[in-house]
Amino acid sequence: MNQQQPKRQDNSRVITRLLASVMIMFAFGFALVPLYEKFCEITGFNGRTSSKAATADSGMQVDQSRVITVEFHTRVSRGVPWEFRPEVRSLRLHPGEVKTVNFYVENKTNRDVVAQALPSVAPGEASLFLNKTECFCFENQPLAAGETAVMPMQFYLDPDLPDHVHRLTLSYMMYDLTEQARPRTARVERSE
């Protein structure tokens, strides 16, 4: 088998390349996570609003010809012993108009809880045009036992909002982040 000598070198080159591809694809799998987030941010793919404060452009024109209904909805996730509700169920506004809505929250337990409200907008594409200049959802909300709080959210709709959107829903889900690093399988047992 004397002709195998040059082939063996060939082999190691091919193997190196293939192993490198395996590594690259493994890394690519993880790289898809931030890529997906970026993609969602640009396209409104999953209906999350931006987690950064927008600044209202002072030259922005209020579009008086259109009236949009914005519905607010709040929920608390399992195990969060809070009351959490918006002051109004919905409001109507013109694109470009800046409005403030207050959300009330009350911690009804005797333990301190850190929670985070996460927004979701339907239709998803509208999330790109819902700009918040101020929001409690940008940060964690620590709430001491028995404490109540009023949390404001100030927003406007971009006048570029697509014409076919007349009604959009902004939903907040409140999650308990007090023990976020706790391994979660153990919780099933702990609930006993």
Binding site: G79, P81, Y175, R187, V188, S191
Partner: peptide, 30 residues
């Protein structure tokens, strides 16, 4: 799914039992 007989919330602290039913348990099916 945890059993309720002779162990766990159903035989321990009463308030904790009410808590679990009222609030649920985060990160579980409860």
């Amino acid at each position: 799914f945890p059993g309720l007989v002779g162990q766990g919330i159903a035989v321990n602290d009463k308030t904790a039992h009410i808590d679990v039913v009222w609030n649920g348990v985060s990160g579980s099916a409860m």
